[in-house]
Nucleic acid binder design. Structure first.
Length: 172
DNA sequence: ACGATGATGAAC
DNA sequence: TTCATCATCGTA
């Protein structure tokens, strides 16, 4: 079984998409080489009231893609040296996305994008076509023991938002 | 614990 | 046009 995840998968509540992405595969094609990576760590950024989300202060040129349709890549540059990879979720006009924090063998968002060669060239590209970067269901059963924790690196948003268990990690 | 390093967005 | 901030990481 090998199925490219389509818009209906992403066009659901962000927390549902985030949890279900664990155990799915992020597939990267570079120079004709296709490499699958099983997703092990993600975070949800959910709606205009989420103080930790880029969308909290409304639509800007950078975050506009979060307000668009689901299943689109959102890649941005942070701390002057790291690229962050997200995929948009939920209906149009509702700003939400899932941050990809780790895959099997590569932990950490900055490291992940560096290892897979992900830059803003991929920003705003659809994640639903088998081209450059996409997601697949390869039939791996999601672990029943997915761990849920607060999100990392968002203390500035205050305890209410940083402690919400919007982070999903494969049980290992 | 802290510096690197630059895009971003808000203020002026 | 400035300026503080930042969904981080490596070194100490």
């Amino acid at each position: 079984m090998r199925r490219v995840l389509q818009r209906p998968f992403f066009d659901r509540p962000t927390l549902v998409v985030a949890e279900e992405l664990i155990g799915k595969f992020l597939v990267r094609e570079r120079d004709g080489v296709v490499t699958p990576y099983m997703l092990t760590e993600v975070e949800a950024y959910d709606g205009p009231k989420d103080k930790a989300s880029h969308a909290f202060r409304g639509r800007t040129p950078r975050n506009a893609v979060m307000f668009g349709p689901a299943g689109v890549l959102y890649v941005y540059f942070c701390y002057g040296m790291h690229h962050m990879l997200n995929v948009t979720t939920g209906p149009e006009e509702y700003p939400a996305a899932v941050l990809i924090r780790g895959v099997q063998g590569v932990v950490g968002r900055g490291r992940l994008t560096k290892a897979l060669g992900i830059t803003r060239e991929l920003d705003r590209l659809p994640a639903t076509k088998a081209n450059a970067l996409w997601f697949e269901d390869r039939g791996v059963m999601p672990s029943r023991a997915i761990r849920r924790t607060g999100r990392i690196g968002v203390a500035y948003a205050g305890p209410l938002w940083s402690k919400r268990r919007y982070r999903f990690v494969w049980k290992d």
